[in-house]
Design a protein around this nucleic acid. Structure first.
Length: 426
RNA sequence: GGAGAAUUGGCCGAGUGGCUUAAGGCGCUCGCUUGGAAAGCGGGUAUACCUCAAAAGGGUAUCGGGGGUUCGAAUCCCUCAUUCUCCGCCA
């Protein structure tokens, strides 16, 4: 959520920036609506505060009059307050309406893209920030996609998931299960080495948390919801981990705050079926290690690069061909100012699979979180938040299975062998 | 799940309708004092919003959350949440 003060101060910049996201000039009218509504909100509040102030001083007077035994004067004053109360009820209702309408409008405005974000509408327009310079792996014609390899080696059973739960809930078994666990431990160890504190958060969150990181109201249909307890299953560890600092005022000296967490992630992905989402390409439940940083605004873009490098390091150790995309304005998520997607080449499917998305949200999330720090002058400022997948398992496994298939079986990359305890799946 | 008790500032804690501008203490911080330190003494020490060109100052709200009663609520009522004790169930 953008701050109203920023919309007022930087309206023209914001118009340019939203243009990058493909906003038409009609939609830009919302900015003026916000400014106008905020001005009227202020004048209503000023009015209301003066009524409240009057009521408070009259009430005090009444108390003193009663004590002095001046019943008549006291009753006179009571009548005045009686009138004021009607007035207050009216202005308070107006104020409440203005505040909620303002918030409604603000929730419709996405984050301002960073200056380096390329213009463009769709994923076709994303910029390849770092291409894969070597030759892409070529497999023979007998190469199998991961869902067939999974059956061949009995390490993953999608049909069993259908029986137990429904479509999109994979069941890993045997070496597939071990591989899963190995990757989780590998990713967490690497994050710890990079200075991230490990967190095991709750997998269900309340509405306040979901709202603070932007899942509500924007992506309500994306989350599984437990009605009886009014809780949401997390779509990513970002939600509970980022909310650790909701409402906090931290010390500048605490920056950078670096957290990592492994969780299972649950996404309804309503209405998506077809070849693109076959096997592990898109599932309702998957495992992911997430990295999160809270940063001083001056440092956040340095941190973003560092996070991308961390994820690159993981892919290098797993010996997977990857490329890095800088998302264009149209493909950028609602809350993000700058996002790098890391994609891994899946040799059997002959396509790039997104395995990580690393973003700087600047103050967009922290404004909802109310996460602040005190600057050198003791003034409170919003912190910057960043997060990235490091990494999402399902698609990594898909790529590992496909790219590493040989006649003898699926070869486990060197870096993982101490975690898996075996070097081939056969 | 049932019964009872509780929730006050960074922390402890007083406060049963107007004397609260939330006492007192601890912590933190600044100053005085000192050769230096401790002790002592004095000051400061929540958040959001409004007002003000800015600062200073002023106003409003917040005593777990929400709602209500009242001229007036930390205090009374309703409701929800959380914590503790006991019972039940349980990996």
């Amino acid at each position: 959520m953008l701050q109203v003060s920023r919309i007022k101060a930087e309206k023209n910049n914001i118009i340019t920036a939203l243009g990058k996201r493909g906003w038409s000039s009609d939609r830009m009218a919302i900015l003026d609506q916000v400014i106008e509504l905020d001005n009227s909100r202020k004048s209503i509040q000023t009015e209301n505060d003066s009524y409240l102030s009057e009521r408070n001083s009259l009430s005090k007077e009444i108390g003193q009059l009663f004590k002095a035994g001046k019943q008549d004067e006291a009753n006179e004053a009571k009548k005045k307050v009686e009138l004021l109360k009607t007035q207050i009820a009216e202005t308070e209702e107006k104020l409440g309406r203005a505040v909620s309408k303002l918030e409604e409008l603000l929730l419709e405005i996405p984050n301002i893209p960073h200056s380096s974000v390329p213009a463009g509408q769709t994923d076709e327009d994303n910029e390849v920030a770092k291409p894969w310079s070597d030759a892409l792996p070529e497999l023979g014609s007998e190469a199998l996609p991961h869902w067939e390899l999974a059956t061949k080696y009995n390490i993953l059973d999608m049909k069993l998931g259908v029986k137990i739960t429904g479509a999109g809930f994979p069941v890993f078994r045997g070496k597939g299960s071990r591989l899963q666990r190995a990757l989780i431990n590998f990713f967490l160890d690497e994050a710890s080495k990079a200075g991230y504190e490990e967190i095991v958060p709750p997998l269900l969150v309340n509405a306040d948390s979901a709202k603070a990181t932007g899942q509500l109201p924007d992506k309500e249909g994306q989350m599984y919801y437990v009605e009886k307890d009014d809780l949401y299953l997390i779509p990513t560890a970002e939600v509970p981990v980022t909310n650790i600092y909701r409402g906090d005022i931290v010390n500048v000296a605490d920056f950078p705050i670096k957290l990592t967490g492994y969780t299972q992630c649950f996404r309804r992905e309503a209405g998506s079926y077809g070849a693109d989402v076959k096997g592990l390409n898109r599932v309702h439940q998957f495992d992911k290690v997430e990295i999160v940083q809270f940063q001083h605004p001056d440092q956040s873009y340095i941190a973003l690069e560092e996070m991308v490098q961390h994820v690159e390091g993981l892919l290098q150790k797993l010996e997977l061909p990857y490329r890095i995309l800088r998302l264009c304005g149209g493909d950028l998520s609602f809350a993000s100012a700058l996002t790098y997607d890391l994609e891994v080449y899946s040799a059997a499917q002959k396509r790039w699979l997104e395995v990580s998305s690393v973003s700087n949200f600047e103050t967009f999330q922290s404004n909802r979180l109310k996460l602040r720090y005190k600057d050198a002058d003791g003034k409170k400022q919003l912190a910057h938040t960043l997060n990235g997948s490091a990494l999402a398992l399902a698609r990594i496994i898909a790529a590992l299975l496909e790219n590493n298939q040989t006649e003898k079986g699926i070869v486990i990359p060197e870096a993982l062998r101490s975690y898996t305890g075996f070097d081939i799946i056969d």
